[in-house]
Design a binder for these strands. Structure first.
Lengths: 340, 340
DNA sequence: CTGAAAGCGCTTACAG
DNA sequence: CTGAAAGCGCTTACAG
C-alpha cells in the first residue's frame, strides 16, 4: 500500500495540490467548505505528510541528536527520560547515540548527526574527549548545541551542570560536622572535570576547617566500579586504620566499599562514616543506607532540552542567541551511613 | 554558513551536478580524474549530503523508531543499549520514545513514527495496551515492526522474548529442590502476558511436584515497587508464618521484601528462601544477595534489531519476509537468598 | 565518459 | 478564494 500524497487528495477532489496543502494547514485564504472536504478526505485516506519532503522544504527536521557516554546508568537514563519527555511536549524527537566514553566515536557521531540534519545537539562528553574541533564544527554550522554534566569549559555554548565543587564541599562538610577528623576520598579518573571538581571541593572543605589534607588518603578510581570500591576499601583499612570518614566520587563505588566494610566487620558509620555521590536508587536500599548527594538527572535533561529548544527557535526567528550556563541545585540526602 | 550542496561543487569544477553525484558515489562510468577532483573539493568544502533530499529520493531514512514503556529501568536501558549499538553497526539511527505504560501515548507515538517515515519500528508494549489497531496499521503500511519482551501474541510479526513460563518454572523448581514446601508468589499486575506466564510457571512447578497450589499465597503487585515488596513481605509473615519459599516477579520488589524481612528478623534464606526475576545489578550487592533469573536485555536488543534489519532489507529486495519468534535462553543465578 | 531532464512530495510567493 | 509555478537537494534512467 503506497502512502497517500497531496496529489491524490487533489485529484479525488478535483482541486489543486496547492489548495489541498493550504487547507490542511488552515490557511485563512481557503474556503470553509474546501477545508472541510479536504480534511475529511485526508482523514478517510489516512493521509500522513511525508516528513522528508516537509523537512526538505522547511529546512528543519523537528529532531535533535543526543550523545551520551553510557545508556545503562541510572543518572544518564534519568537525563534521557527528562530530555525525551520535554522534547515530546514540544513536538521534537530524539535520536540517541552512545559514545562509550570514546572520543573517536563521539567525533563520528557528531558528524552523523550533522549529516542527519538534526535541528540541534545535546551532549555529555566522553571522559577521553580532550579536543573540541568536532564541537566547534557544530557551532560553525550555526547549529545549536547544549552540553550537560560533562562539559568543556572552553567551548562557547550553553551548558547545564551542577556545581560539583560545591556539592563535594557540602558532602565533606557534613562528615566534618558529625565529628570526622581524618577523612579519605575515593576520587574519579584524573580527566573529566567533574572528578577534579569533586576532589577540589573535598580538599577545600578540609582546609576551611583546619584539617590537614593528606594526599595518601586520596585513591583514584579508574573504572568507577563496585569492585573498585571493594578493593580500595580493603586497601584503606590496611593502610590507614585511623580514618573515620570517607567521601566517595560516586554511589556505585560507595556501595562496593560499604559491602567490603560490612564483610570485614568495619562498622559504618561508627568506625567510618561515608558519603557518596549521585543518589542512585540502590543507595537508599542497601544496609546501612548511604548518605549521598542527589544529582538531578531528570531535571538536567529537561533543562538542557529547554535551552536547546529556545536556541533553535531564536535562530529561526533571527533573534540573537545568548549562551547560558545553568547550575542546578543539589541536595545532601542524609541516611544511615553518617547517622550516629 | 550555508551548507554546501552538489550544485556548488559542480559550479566550482564546471561540471554537471549529475557527474558530481555519481563521482561521490563511485559510479563506474565516471573518470578517475573527475572522481579525484570531485572528492577533493567535497572534502575541502566539508560537503555533507542533505539527508532529507536523499531520503526523499531513496525513500528510506536509515532511521528506526523504538517505543519502550520506561527508560529509567535496568532491563530496558540494557535493551536500548543493545539496539543502538547494533543499529550503529548497520548505519542506522534510533529515535526513542517512551510510552510510560500508556496505551494512548503508545498509539500516538506509533503515528508520529509513521509520519517520520522511519524504516521500521521496535516496540515493547505498555501494560495497558489491550487493542492492537495501531500495530496493525504499521503492518498495513507494509512497514516492518518487531516486538520484544512485552508482546501481543495476536499480532502477526516477528518477536523476541524469553520464555517467562519456563523461567518461572525454573525459579520455583529451584526453591523446591532446596527443600521448600510452602512457596508464596508475589506476581505482577493482571494484565501483561509476562506476569501471567510467570504466575503459570510457578503454579505448574508446584503441581508437577505434588505441592498444593494455594491462591492465598499469591499476592498481586500493581506498581512493582520497592515499597510494595516491603508491604507484601510484612503481610505475608502476618498471614502465613509457615511459608518457607517465595518467588517474586521482579528483583526490585524482591529487594524490598528482603529489606523488610531483614528488618523484622526473618532470616533469608533460613526462614524463607527467595528467588527474584531480572538480575538487576542491585541484586548481586544487597545482603543477602538475591538468587534470580537473568533476563538478557542487551542480547534481546541486539536480536530485535537484527530481525528488523533483515526484514527491512528483504522488503527492499522484494524477498518474502518470514516472521520469526525468537526465544532467548535464560539462566538461574544462584546466590545467598537460596543458599543454606 | 558526461550531462540534461524528470521526479521524489511538499511549501509558498505570486498572479488572477 | 484558487491554482500554476518554482524550488528544496538529491538520484537515476536515458541520450549522446
Amino acid at each position: 500500500m503506497k502512502p497517500v500524497t497531496l496529489r491524490q487528495i487533489a485529484e479525488i477532489l478535483n482541486i489543486s495540490i496547492t489548495t489541498v496543502s493550504k487547507a490542511l494547514k488552515d490557511y485563512p485564504d481557503v474556503s470553509k467548505k474546501t477545508k472541510r472536504l479536504v480534511k475529511e478526505t485526508a482523514k478517510t485516506l489516512n493521509y500522513k505528510p511525508n516528513s522528508f519532503a516537509v523537512n526538505l522544504r522547511t529546512r528543519e527536521s523537528k529532531t535533535i541528536g543526543l550523545i551520551i557516554p553510557e545508556v545503562v546508568h541510572h543518572f544518564f537514563s534519568s537525563v534521557i527520560k527528562g530530555i525525551i519527555s520535554q522534547a515530546e511536549k514540544n513536538g521534537y524527537m530524539v535520536i540517541i547515540l552512545q559514545s562509550n566514553e570514546s572520543f573517536e566515536l563521539e567525533k563520528k557521531q557528531i558528524d552523523l548527526l550533522l549529516r542527519k540534519q538534526v535541528d540541534g545537539i545535546l551532549i555529555s562528553l566522553a571522559n577521553s574527549t580532550v579536543r573540541y574541533e568536532h564541537l566547534n564544527e557544530v557551532l560553525d554550522q550555526n547549529k545549536p548545541i547544549v552540553m550537560f554534566d560533562k562539559i568543556a569549559k572552553l567551548v562557547n555554548c550553553s551548558k547545564v551542570i551542577i556545581n560539583d565543587r560545591k556539592a563535594a564541599y557540602l558532602a565533606t562538610q557534613h562528615l566534618i560536622d558529625i565529628g570526622c577528623k581524618r577523612i579519605a576520598h575515593f576520587r574519579g579518573p584524573l580527566l573529566p572535570q567533574n572528578s577534579i571538581d569533586r576532589f577540589l571541593g573535598y580538599k577545600k572543605a578540609l582546609e576551611d576547617n583546619n584539617l590537614i589534607y593528606d594526599s595518601s588518603l586520596v585513591y583514584v578510581c579508574n573504572d568507577m566500579s563496585f569492585d573498585e570500591g571493594k578493593n580500595f576499601a580493603k586497601q584503606l583499612i590496611e593502610e590507614h586504620s585511623n580514618v573515620d570518614g570517607l567521601f566517595i566520587n560516586t554511589d556505585l563505588v560507595a556501595v562496593g566499599a560499604i559491602s567490603e566494610f560490612n564483610k570485614r566487620g568495619v562498622i559504618v558509620p561508627k568506625d567510618i562514616a561515608i558519603v557518596g555521590f549521585s543518589n542512585w536508587f540502590m543507595s537508599s536500599v542497601i544496609s546501612p543506607s548511604l548518605t549521598t548527594i542527589d544529582q538531578p538527572g531528570y531535571k538536567m535533561g529537561k533543562k538542557a532540552f529547554k535551552l536547546l529548544y529556545k536556541e533553535i527557535k531564536n535562530k529561526k526567528e533571527n533573534i540573537e542567541v545568548k549562551y547560558k550556563k545553568v547550575e542546578l541545585p543539589v541536595q545532601l540526602i542524609k541516611r544511615e551511613s553518617t547517622a550516629f
